[in-house]
């Protein structure tokens, strides 16, 4: 087993599985986020937040989630370093091969998402844990609704957020189909469907996330 997880394919499988788990998590995250837009002064959103922060099952899932993040990032970095080492002398002419464009920049988009994640944690998760002071405008550590609204009222923050979402879209664009390929699921009939869903997913999910600051900024 240790051999398996040390092999290039084993590491890739971990990347794929963790990545897919994170992708599924994004759907849950987005559906909760969208409650912000419900015109009830944040009541539904706050309820959802409370559920997510108190439910035991969710707590367990949270451990998995963080584990996935950590492994996805650590494996990603290890693989990338190996990949760089595999070509100690670079080409002078840049590669012109026909390839999936976004796949070439997974480490870059990935690292940017990681930076975003740290900012995101500073703004929300660490506040909840009490590691970071409660920002102005929020009443208590779990008052995510006001934290969100206040942050998104800031155009600089909102647009940065939107840009991060676009980059996440780039990451996801290659991620879904690549994960299936790594898992060994490549089939003449189903792979085109997977690719289509992957692309749709990579567009819709970031679009959903990006819509919230946009709406808060201009229509709230």
């Amino acid at each position: 087993m240790a051999k398996f997880f040390n092999s290039s394919i084993g590491k890739k499988l971990m990347m794929a599985l963790m990545g897919l788990f994170l992708a599924v998590f994004l759907v849950v995250h987005l559906s909760i986020n969208l409650l912000v837009l419900k015109n009830d002064g944040g009541e539904s959103y706050q309820k959802a937040v409370e559920f997510m922060t108190s439910n035991v099952l969710i707590k367990i899932m949270e451990v998995f989630l963080f584990g996935s993040f950590a492994l996805h990032i650590i494996y990603g970095i290890i693989l990338q370093i190996q990949n760089w080492l595999a070509r100690p002398v670079r080409y002078v002419k840049t590669n012109h091969s026909q390839t999936s464009f976004f796949s070439k920049y997974m480490i870059h988009t990935g690292l940017i998402i990681f930076i975003f994640l740290i900012i995101h944690f500073m703004n929300f998760y660490f506040v909840k844990l009490g590691w970071v002071a409660i920002p102005e405008g929020a009443t208590h550590r779990h008052d995510f609704y006001n934290m969100v609204i206040n942050l998104f009222k800031n155009p600089f923050y909102s647009w940065l957020y939107i840009i991060f979402m676009v980059l996440m879209g780039f990451h996801l664009h290659h991620a879904i189909q690549s994960a299936f390929q790594t898992m060994g699921w490549n089939h003449p009939i189903y792979t085109p469907i997977v690719k289509f869903i992957g692309v749709a997913y990579a567009i819709l999910i970031p679009l959903g996330f990006a819509f919230i600051p946009f709406y808060v900024l201009y229509f709230f």
Partner: peptide, 22 residues
């Protein structure tokens, strides 16, 4: 074969598809 491939210092696959294209 995979163990030997890893041992010899080849990189990992990122499903970029350049191999197939070339």
């Amino acid at each position: 074969m995979v163990a030997k491939m890893d041992e010899l210092g080849f990189g990992n696959c990122t499903n970029t598809g350049a191999c197939e294209a070339e």
